[in-house]
Amino acid sequence: MPQKSVSLDAIDLKILEALQADGRMPLAKLGELVGLSPSPCLRRIRILEAAGVIARYVAVLDQRKVGLPISVFASIKLERQEEQALNRFAKAVSRWPEVLECYLMTGQRDYLLRIVVEDLSAYERFLKEKLTRHAGIASIESSFALEQVKYTNALPLD
């Protein structure tokens, strides 16, 4: 079921942009940045959280500095594109911590995965012990990222 869009005004957008840049920004600084005192600013944040616009707060880690420098993009084609097979694959992927992102796709492939690992041997283990053991996969095409040109988790709100 599609989620209902939330109506955001200019101040809400400023709050969201600031929190995307720094989720730990002190309330006083955030309020000053958006032109509100801390109390109304906090009230707006709580409304955005309750509406699900702010889904959660996280620390963004540098994958290289935590020993996971390899990003692999795997295109997966399933043998059958039936709802049950799609759900079974999605459930399996959700249990694999190496998979940071998984998208159901249109086109020639059914899924696109972003997988992070420490080295090529770790990817080989992931492939042999997890991915290829999942019943219903027709093919897997892996592409290794050579360089990360851009990465952001901030949505373009302007």
Rank of each mutant, 00 (worst) to 15 (best):
R56W: 09
E82T: 09
P69L: 11
A145N: 09
R88P: 04
A18R: 02
Y57S: 02
S39E: 08
P156H: 10
P40D: 08
G23S: 15
T106E: 01
L157M: 08
E83P: 15
E141L: 06
N87H: 10
V6P: 02
R88C: 04
F89S: 01
L19F: 04
S5C: 01
I115H: 06
I47P: 00
E147L: 10
V6Q: 11
L78M: 14
S142Q: 07
E141N: 12
Q148Y: 05
K91S: 14
L48N: 12
A50E: 03
E82C: 00
R95Y: 07
E147Q: 15
L42N: 05
G67Y: 09
A59M: 12
V149K: 12
L19D: 02
P2I: 13
L27P: 11
G35I: 02
F89E: 05
V99P: 07
R114F: 05
R56C: 03
G35E: 01
V149Y: 12
S39K: 02
Q81E: 09
I45V: 07
D9L: 08
L131A: 10
F126S: 04
S39M: 03
P2C: 11
E49Q: 10
T152W: 08
E82Y: 09
A85I: 03
E83I: 15
R24E: 10
M105P: 01
A74D: 07
F89D: 00
Q84C: 01
R125F: 06
K4S: 13
I47M: 09
M1I: 10
R43A: 01
M1E: 10
A122C: 05
P69C: 11
L127D: 04
Q81S: 07
G35Y: 02
M25Y: 00
A21Q: 10
Q63E: 08
L68T: 00
S37K: 04
V93F: 13
A122T: 05
A10W: 04
L13I: 12
V116S: 03
A55C: 06
A21N: 10
A92T: 15
R125I: 03
C41L: 06
E124P: 06
F89Q: 00
G23H: 11
K4A: 11
S39L: 03
D22R: 00
A145K: 07
G35H: 00
A28K: 00
G67L: 10
Y103N: 02
I140H: 06
L146K: 09
L146S: 14
L104P: 13
A90L: 14
Q3H: 14
L27T: 04
A135I: 13
D119Q: 05
S7E: 15
V116D: 00
L127I: 04
M25C: 02
G23C: 10
V116K: 00
L13S: 01
R56M: 08
V117I: 05
L16K: 00
R44S: 08
R109D: 08
D9T: 03
Y57M: 02
G52P: 11
K150S: 08
A135F: 12
F144N: 08
K14R: 13
N87W: 06
D62H: 10
D119P: 02
L146G: 13
E124N: 11
V53R: 06
H134V: 15
K4M: 11
A92C: 13
L104T: 14
K29E: 01
N153V: 02
K77Y: 14
L42I: 05
I140Y: 08
P26Q: 02
A135R: 11
L78Y: 12
